[in-house]
């Protein structure tokens, strides 16, 4: 089904999107002809996108479209087969995975990824300590620094978990764990947040909480959001990219994407398709 779509669209869609000025905020993260192949499988093919400051960039697409691959490339978990990743104009595709966070690219995982046996505060302290430094100091007590604790508390406050400060992370609800994960990323003082399905497996109320949270956060950060919950994505995104089979289909505002014929085909199939 997907091969039809790319043929049908004809012109390379990536360039079409890149030239359209959607907003005037600064581009903080950018990919240029980014490819990731696993042997013969093209998980991601020739993707050029721009992510802007203080905007939420939604990425949607059917399963296997390469959304998670894209996030893994953007945070350094995978290295690209070809192409470039630019952070504020500098090529970063070949730096070490841990250096991505130091550059301000923070990542949330698809599966909740926290320190389950530590308290919420400690979870954020681990993150904040990266910024404060002194992580090789064996003489300084881990609880001695006010600044560090304050930073961790601020991060908890931002996501609305201040009341869970001393609760052990494994004992709080699933939704709260997702919030905590975002808090740990915030504690590293990022400029870009890469979020992989933060609302997966959540009930309606919990989802609403995260949506409100993301609405607030996007005023300060560049957010790249991969999400299956279409209502949420439509509500939140300033720009929306649709991907199909590792290929870029369209990047535009939500309204434009919603009306695009190719998107409807990608999701709903063509009328004459044999099922």
């Amino acid at each position: 089904m997907s091969s039809n779509i790319t043929l049908e669209s004809g012109a390379p869609v990536a360039t079409q999107a890149a030239h359209k000025p959607l907003s005037d905020t600064e581009v903080v993260l950018e990919t240029e002809a980014l490819c990731k192949y696993w042997g013969g499988l093209k998980a991601l093919d020739d993707l050029s996108l721009q992510f802007r400051d203080r905007q939420l960039h939604g990425i949607v697409g059917p399963n296997g479209a390469g959304k998670s691959t894209l996030l893994n490339l953007l945070c350094g978990t995978y290295s690209p087969t070809r192409g470039r990743i630019l952070h504020k104009g500098e090529a970063i595709e070949s730096i070490k995975p841990y250096e991505f966070s130091r550059r301000g690219i923070g990542r949330g995982f698809q599966k909740t990824n926290i320190y389950p046996s530590a308290t919420c505060l400690e979870n954020c302290s681990i993150a904040a300590q990266r910024r404060v430094g002194g992580s090789f100091n064996i003489f300084r007590s881990r609880h001695s620094e006010k600044l560090l604790t304050e930073m961790a508390e601020q991060a908890l406050e931002k996501v609305g978990l201040a009341h869970r400060r001393d609760a052990v992370a494994s004992r709080i609800s699933y939704g709260e764990q997702r919030q905590l994960e975002i808090a740990t990323v915030l504690a590293t003082a990022p400029c870009v947040l890469l979020l992989d399905e933060p609302m997966a497996g959540m009930g309606h109320e919990e989802s609403q909480l995260i949506i409100q949270l993301l609405k607030t956060l996007k005023q300060d950060y560049c957010i790249v959001l991969v999400e299956h919950d279409m209502d949420a994505v439509f509500e939140l995104s300033d720009q929306l990219t649709v991907m199909v089979d590792g290929q870029h289909l369209i990047t535009d505002t939500v309204d434009q994407v919603r009306d695009d014929a190719r998107v409807q085909i990608a999701y709903l199939g063509q009328g004459d398709e044999v099922i």
């Binding site: 945070c75 995975p97 841990y98 991505f100 966070s101 923070g106 990542r107 995982f109 990824n113 926290i114 320190y115 389950p116 046996s117 530590a118 400690e122 302290s125 681990i126 993150a127 300590q129 990266r130 002194g134 992580s135 090789f136 100091n137 064996i138 003489f139 300084r140 007590s141 881990r142 620094e145 740990t184 990323v185 590293t188």
Partner: peptide, 20 residues
């Protein structure tokens, strides 16, 4: 110590610690 905090973190979740 602060070093110990990261030692604990590395043991419990190396993937997360790298991502931080």
């Amino acid at each position: 110590s602060k070093f110990g905090r990261i030692v604990d973190a590395v043991q419990e979740n190396p993937e997360r610690t790298t991502a931080l």
